[in-house]
Amino acid sequence: MTKSRFRPCIDLHQGKVKQIVGGTLRDDGPGPKENFVSELGAGDFAKKFRDDRLTGGHVIKLGPGNDEAAREALAAWPGGMQIGGGIHVDNAQEWLDAGASHVIVTSWLFDDGVRLSDDKVRLLAERIGPERLVIDLSCRRDGDGWTVATNRWQTLTDLKVDECSLDRLAPFCDEFLIHAADVEGLCGGIDHQLVELLGSWGGKPVTYAGGASSMQDLESIDLLGGGRVDVTVGSALDLFGGDKLCYRDLVEWNCR
């Protein structure tokens, strides 16, 4: 029987491990709302995930100034984590060589950050192999559905998150990563309808991120997603200064 599993994450901003409210990460105006800033380096977190044999997690570079920290994490858990943030066809192999199991790509796949380019999708998949590519379809609520958002979730694209889009992109990647940006970092619960959509599709592995703040949320993801949707947890986790979920409980949840 397929079961959802917890996947770890390391979010990097200005070279530090942070947890940020997703909708506040902007190029203009005041800085993002930070829920947590760690005194430990990215490598320290990656070593913990390595020691606990947590695979399939991701390192996300939120803007410039994060390459050194990202390399530190990948070196600490070679082959154990994916890398995203500023990845494109000319540097993807470089990050794989640095120890990433996969590269995670969103913005580069869209011309002007708005229009999905099938040519770019094919080019990247051909260059590194679809088995090394994770397509990030992180999104925002738009009417009665969801629209992919690029450029650190600031720009809405022409691509909806639905079964048609997932079918269109599935041949070119190994899995999908989907942040529900409107609930990311708020610790206010998951987007149940989005999880249900992802689980009903079930064509490729999918990791959902956004709002998980209790074991009930994780159980809901497992139930609504039919065991086909994995989950990552950020601000609610005690590892990142939260008080709602215990990291050790999630490690044990993977072994259930």
Rank of each mutant, 00 (worst) to 15 (best):
T2H: 12
R5F: 01
R7F: 01
R7M: 06
C9F: 00
D11I: 01
G15V: 01
G15Q: 02
V17S: 02
K18I: 14
Q19D: 02
I20Y: 00
V21L: 11
G22T: 08
G23F: 08
R26E: 00
P30C: 06
F36I: 02
S38V: 09
E39Q: 14
E39F: 04
A46I: 03
K47S: 12
K47W: 00
K47G: 03
R53Y: 13
R53I: 06
T55P: 00
V59S: 05
K61G: 07
K61N: 07
N66K: 10
D67F: 04
E68Y: 00
E72A: 11
M81E: 04
M81A: 14
Q82E: 14
G84C: 12
D90Q: 13
N91I: 12
A92C: 12
A100Y: 06
S101K: 14
V103E: 02
V103L: 07
T106P: 04
L109K: 07
D111I: 12
D112A: 15
L116R: 10
V121S: 10
L123S: 14
L124H: 10
E131K: 09
D136T: 06
S138M: 00
R140W: 00
D144A: 15
D144V: 11
T150A: 06
N151A: 15
T155W: 02
L156T: 05
T157A: 03
D158M: 12
K160H: 13
D162P: 13
D162A: 11
E163M: 13
C164P: 00
C164V: 14
A170L: 09
P171M: 03
P171H: 11
P171E: 07
C173P: 10
C173K: 11
C173E: 04
E184P: 05
G185S: 06
H192M: 13
V195W: 00
E196N: 09
L197K: 13
L197M: 14
L198T: 07
P205A: 04
T207L: 12
Y208I: 09
A209K: 04
G211P: 10
G211D: 05
G211Q: 10
S214I: 09
M215S: 08
Q216T: 14
Q216Y: 03
D222F: 03
D222G: 11
L224E: 01
V231S: 09
V233S: 05
D238K: 11
F240V: 01
G241S: 02
G242V: 05
L245C: 06
Y247I: 07
V251T: 08
V251R: 06
E252T: 12
W253V: 02
C255Y: 12
